[in-house]
């Protein structure tokens, strides 16, 4: 399971990065550990706009309840993969 998940996670991560580009106003290099609040300086509303774009792109529902656990770009990519598997 873990082995099968990693290539997919990598693809998901790069797709999330593409979706993130318009929000990356400082143009920083995004890694899985990049955080939305301190590294990307996104306020709570911008994070939710980004999530809406991610939901549409992957055709998934990311409930607001998950927000507190989604601090980094990598965590979002993992969450998307997990939701797609469910």
């Amino acid at each position: 399971m873990t082995e099968a998940a990693s290539p997919s996670a990598t693809t998901t991560f790069s797709e999330v990065c593409d979706l993130l580009a318009p929000f990356n106003k400082r143009g920083i290099t995004v890694t899985p550990s990049t955080t939305f609040s301190s590294d990307l300086d996104l306020d709570s509303l911008a994070v939710m706009d980004l999530l809406a774009a991610i939901e549409d792109h992957f055709d998934v529902t990311v409930p607001l309840n998950m927000l507190p656990d989604l601090e980094t770009v990598g965590q979002v990519a993992e969450a998307v993969d997990k939701i797609k598997d469910d």
Binding site: M48, T61, L64, N65
Partner: peptide, 21 residues
């Protein structure tokens, strides 16, 4: 509950999000 948000005042977006549930 599980909380889902739709785009402000956008019936089409609501439709799409409800269809995903």
């Amino acid at each position: 509950a599980t909380i889902v948000r739709f785009r402000h005042n956008d019936p089409e977006d609501l439709d799409k999000r409800l269809a995903r549930l």
